[in-house]
Simulated assay, not measured.
Amino acid sequence: MIIRHMEPEDCGAIIAVAAHWWGSSYTSDMFSSWYIRHFRDTCLVAEEEGRMVGFLMGFWSQTLPDEAYIRIVMVDPAARGQGIGRALYEKLFEQAIASGRTTVRCVTAPWKKDSIAFHTKLGFRIEPQQQELEGVPVCLNYDGRGGQRVMFARRLSR
């Protein structure tokens, strides 16, 4: 497997697989050449034998210069459990450390128990919130539209 930076030309392939890999419809302005062009350094593609098997899209925070944010990660369902997601995260961690970042943040939906377990195994901690859902701290109205998310942070060490 190789992990490389995403290129604007990758957006068509990402759009073609996103809904299937996500398990339901998924559209985002991130899946555009302009986003990839501006955030290329923090957008990664995992390939096996020239075929995309996963991708990660994130960014360095401009407001909090010691933080990075992972916006979305998707792995081909046929390739899950092979360490692809972990490899994408670890590559971003390496890059974050090299750019002086000390914290990586991300979120997931509270009903995605596999995602919560995955992030916990990677060393993320769930950030405390005022509300809990089934024993998990949840940020209510995370997106300003009523969305609920589990918020994670991971401190990086050099």
Rank of each mutant, 00 (worst) to 15 (best):
R51Q: 12
G123S: 07
D66L: 09
H119S: 04
G144R: 13
G58M: 11
Y69C: 14
I36L: 02
I14M: 06
Y35W: 08
R86E: 15
R4S: 00
D114R: 07
F31G: 01
L44M: 02
S25Q: 10
C11N: 04
G81N: 07
V53Q: 09
G123M: 05
R86C: 12
P77Y: 04
C139T: 15
I84N: 03
F55P: 01
V17H: 00
M57L: 10
Y35F: 12
H20I: 00
S33I: 07
T63R: 13
I2R: 03
Y69S: 10
Y26L: 12
G12E: 08
D114T: 05
R158C: 14
G12Q: 05
T63G: 10
Q129S: 15
R158V: 14
R125T: 13
M1R: 09
A79I: 03
I126Q: 14
P128N: 15
L122F: 02
A98R: 11
E47W: 06
E134V: 10
S61G: 13
G54S: 06
V107K: 09
C139Y: 13
Y69L: 13
C139R: 15
E9N: 08
M151G: 10
I84E: 07
Q82K: 15
Y142W: 15
M30W: 05
S99W: 02
G146R: 02
V73F: 02
F31D: 02
A96Q: 04
L122Y: 07
L88F: 03
A79Q: 14
F152S: 08
S157A: 15
E7P: 00
R86I: 13
V150H: 13
R149I: 09
M52Y: 00
I72M: 08
I15L: 03
D10R: 02
A117T: 12
F55T: 00
A98N: 12
S157F: 14
F93C: 07
F39P: 00
G135F: 05
H5F: 00
D10L: 02
S28N: 08
A13E: 04
D41Q: 01
F118W: 07
F39Y: 11
I70F: 06
Y35C: 05
A96H: 03
